[in-house]
């Protein structure tokens, strides 16, 4: 490579690489470093290497901590899975519907999907609290229509509603992108060969939009595991998730190394999952698509 081409490459790749370094690798490295340092009273870390956080996490003698951690960990994964599933169930038909609209209408629908991003997530979650409260909009309406009031706030249902609400656009957008790319001649070809609507969906549409489904699930699943706002506001702190555990360690418990250690474990597991997903994607990609 000539000197000039090297310079050009650096110029082109520089900003992106810098961005990744500053906002992704550096914080990640910081968390890893913190996780092997010593706790400092009143927050922060002492720069003395100490693996006690990991020992604490996995030591069988410290049963209470690991149990707590495992329960919250499992719950986070479960909530993330459930949220992804519900988002997929709602998001797929929605994305399909948008993709079938004439081109000029599509952008309007996509715009509507994106509108919530214009408001702070915290504010929107509080809005849900007002809707779901015992004296909130939902219960007022139910009462007006002659139904029983329901206690929904501070329940897992309220958390799920909040999580699904917040994640839906992240499911709809990649799904839309892959459905919009779908060649509808293939649908006709399948019908022509005797496939009814269900078979067309199962054998043609679903496999061809699988990349969108995968991307949507990754984009919903990972942020939800770290959710902190929704469980706090709509779950009343009763349904603690990983985010809450971390907040507790970095906040009231003032144990930064332990909080960092939890993050690291979780980061490793999620990364393994994503790598696994990308691998399987690539294998499909090589063979066709």
């Amino acid at each position: 490579m000539t000197q000039r081409r090297k310079a050009l490459l650096a110029f082109l790749l520089g900003p992106g690489a810098g961005w990744l370094l500053l906002f992704f690798l550096l914080p990640g490295a910081l968390v890893i470093v913190y996780s092997i340092l010593t706790r400092k009273d009143g927050g922060g870390v002492e720069w003395i290497v100490d693996f006690s956080s990991y020992v604490k996490l996995f030591s069988p003698t410290d049963g209470a901590v690991i149990n707590d951690f495992m329960v919250i960990f499992a719950r986070s994964l479960w909530w993330a899975a459930l949220t992804s599933f519900v988002c997929l169930l709602i998001g797929y038909p929605l994305a399909y519907f948008i993709a079938l609209q004439p081109a000029h209408v599509r952008s309007t629908y996509l715009f509507l999907v994106l509108i919530p991003f214009w408001t702070n997530f915290l504010v929107r979650t509080y809005a849900w609290k007002f809707i779901l409260n015992n004296n909130g909009l939902l219960n007022t309406l139910l009462q007006d229509w002659g139904f029983e009031r329901i206690a929904i706030i501070n329940t897992p249902t309220a958390v799920l509603i909040g999580l699904v609400y917040g994640s839906l656009p992240f499911m709809v957008l990649p799904l839309y992108a892959s459905i919009e790319k779908l060649d509808f001649d293939l649908v006709e070809a399948a019908q022509d060969l005797g496939a009814n609507y269900l078979s067309v969906f199962r054998r043609i549409i679903l496999p061809l939009t699988a990349p969108g489904i995968g991307a949507g699930i990754v984009l919903v699943f990972i942020p939800v595991t770290g959710q902190y706002i929704v469980p706090t506001i709509l779950g009343g702190g009763k349904v603690a998730m990983l985010g809450n555990l971390l907040a507790q360690q970095f906040g009231p418990a003032l144990n930064w190394p332990f909080g960092s250690a939890i993050s690291v474990i979780f980061m490793v597991l999620l990364m393994a999952a994503v790598v696994f997903y990308l691998r399987s994607e690539n294998r499909d990609g090589e063979a066709g698509l």
Binding site: L186, A190, G194, G288, L289
Partner: peptide
């Protein structure tokens, strides 16, 4: 009648082969 209930088959101008299926699976589809 919908297309899948008619005993006719079509060769499409752009072929419309299923990209995710092998040639054998394409031919076997019907």
């Amino acid at each position: 009648l919908p297309p899948f209930k008619r005993n006719v088959n079509t060769v499409f101008q752009n072929y419309a082969l299923f990209p995710h299926l092998s040639v054998s699976d394409n031919v076997a589809f019907g």
